[in-house]
């Protein structure tokens, strides 16, 4: 259940705001307080701390492995993922050279994992990035503006969080036939609320800093303050949150097919393969269910491991200075 769908498994920084707290009490601690201009040294130290985190490195390894599998794999392992082959349906693993068997229209499952994985990874990555950008802009503008504008903007975020994404997507499924760009936009649009809260909370603490006040006093516009002074200072939070957002976007995408909003055949993604396998629960065709489910769990866990390790790496820096 996702996040969007879900509150994450992360620690306080993420879980409380993810699930809908008030601005005052559940305000997230900023994951990072890093000053623009120290970029290069900062990045090196974060990379060093990250590389010492075993779970983080395992996660990174899994992600690299799956990307190679999806994008390089088809060069080595050739399969037909477009045409229906009724002579080859429902074959068990190992039969006629199909390492993981075939599905109900004769597509090779291993090849389909590579082919569908591209969609899952691309949609997840793009939607996660859109969500973080949208959320950052919304949160930075709200936090910088303050007053009733901030209140209004954050109540809109609260209202969005009060309507769970799965319910919204189930209604949307009755209206449209999805394409890849449409899924990216839809998932991005239901996922920007949590980053908006995180960035707003950090912006509020930046707003009172001298250098932001000076920009204001010198007559610098709000746009300049937001883009030149606030966004660069929340970059660490954005990076950490983006990792979690990508994980949640891939997970949400897995639900999308289950809700009837999946890509039409012959296109697919891992969630589409998994929900297609549901109808064979009692037929013993485990190869249509388990492989797709396992790669989803692998990639989502991996992004969460990396996000957790990144946050720890950034936080160590914070503790080291104070």
């Amino acid at each position: 259940m996702t996040r969007g769908t879900t509150g994450g498994p992360g620690t306080g920084d993420r879980s409380v705001p993810a699930a809908g707290s008030s601005p005052e009490l559940g305000a997230p601690r900023p994951a990072v307080a890093h000053r623009a201009g120290r970029g290069a040294g900062m990045a090196r130290r974060v990379a060093r701390d990250f590389s010492r985190n075993r779970l983080g490195m395992v996660g990174l390894g899994i992600i690299v492995g799956l990307v190679l599998f999806c994008f390089v794999g088809p060069l080595v392992y050739h399969t037909d993922q477009v045409h229906v082959n009724l002579a080859q349906v429902d074959l068990p693993p190992g039969h006629s050279g199909h390492l993981l068997g075939t599905d109900d229209v004769g597509h090779d499952i291993l090849g389909r994992l590579m082919y569908g994985g591209r969609n899952s990874l691309e949609i997840g990555l793009a939607a996660g990035v859109i969500a973080v950008w949208l959320g950052t802009l919304w949160g930075a503008v709200a936090g910088y503006a303050g007053g009733w504008v901030e209140g209004l903007m954050m109540r809109i975020v609260d209202a969005g969080i009060a309507i769970p994404a799965l319910f919204l997507l189930l209604v949307v499924a009755t209206m449209v036939t999805p394409t890849v760009p449409m899924l990216i936009v839809i998932i991005g649009l239901v996922s920007w609320l949590v980053p908006a809260r995180l960035v707003r909370a950090e912006t509020v603490s930046l707003r009172t800093r001298d250098y932001v006040q000076v920009v204001k006093a010198m007559g610098g516009g709000a746009t300049r303050a937001v883009f030149r002074h606030i966004v660069p200072n929340v970059v660490g939070t954005m990076i950490v949150n983006a990792t979690f957002q990508v994980a949640d976007a891939i997970l949400l995408l897995a639900y999308v097919s289950f809700l009837g909003l999946g890509l039409p055949q012959p296109q697919t993604d891992w969630g589409g393969m998994l929900s297609n396998g549901i109808q064979y629960t009692y037929d013993g065709y485990w190869w249509m269910i388990i492989p797709a489910g396992v790669v989803i769990v692998l990639v989502v866990s991996a992004f969460n491991f990396v996000g957790d390790a990144l946050r720890d790496a950034f936080e160590v820096r914070l503790q080291g200075r104070s």
């Binding site: 259940m1 879900t6 994450g8 498994p9 994980a247 997970l251 897995a254 639900y255 289950f258 969630g271 998994l274 929900s275 396998g277 549901i278 629960t281 485990w286 269910i289 489910g293 989803i296 769990v297 692998l298 990639v299 989502v300 866990s301 969460n304 491991f305 957790d308």
Partner: peptide
Amino acid sequence: GAFVGYATPVYFLALLLVI
């Protein structure tokens, strides 16, 4: 275990339990 539990789509878990 917690990360894997979080990363498992609820309907995948349900399918495994039903199987």
